[in-house]
Amino acid sequence: MGHFLSPVPSKIQQHSFYIEGTITDAQVIELIRKGHTEAYGDLVRQYHKRVMGYCFSMLSNHTDAEEAAQDVFVKVYTSLNKFKGDSSFSTWLYRITANHCLDVLRKRNRRKNVSLESLVEQEGSQIQKLFATPSVADTHLENRQLADKILSTLTEDQRQILTLREAEGLEYQEIADVLNCSLDAVKGRLARARKQLQENLRHIQKSWDVSNIENKKEKGS
């Protein structure tokens, strides 16, 4: 029987539970409950990318995202006894992740400072560049921060539902399970969030175009 304090097993051993391909999340959880705590490493590996991806999309900062993802996995481990299996493990995990990221976002309390006008004023030219050269968007730190600022113009709930759909690629029903709401509510909220994001981007684009023309006129005169 494995023990809590046993060292992290080798890479081959680490993947043993899932490599066999026959074991389900529920079975791995059962193993952990029986004392095979090293099996939790397999569960972490299995969901690392998804949790990390979600945290990154919500927090837009690699360090914050990693810290949040670690917190989530520690929280999940300590709450494993509360997991009754009413929903799938991944849904439960996403629920914990979503709530944790919302908490982090609220603590940051950044939305207070972000308005469309100030964003256009400060970052207008950068936003134009961002959409003109999308290939570097995922790697360039500045672009990531810019994307974060754009997403910060949305409410936390709008950002959350868009992240679940656009970054994580969850189906509508899965989103409904994670957010604990009806399918119709997901359809409505997602449509509103998308519309809001499109409107914000158009507003930024227009404002930038206007201010750019004015600047050119001033220079010309």
């Binding site: 680490q14 590996r45 690392h48 990318k49 481990y77 999308p134």
Partner: peptide, 24 residues
């Protein structure tokens, strides 16, 4: 623009190992 705004970071297997070790 959704592809740009919601682009995910690239994570290697080494990142995965380091992360898992930290959690454990």
């Amino acid at each position: 623009f959704a592809g740009i705004l919601f682009a995910l970071p690239t994570l290697s297997e080494a990142d995965e190992d380091i992360f898992t070790n930290k959690v454990m």
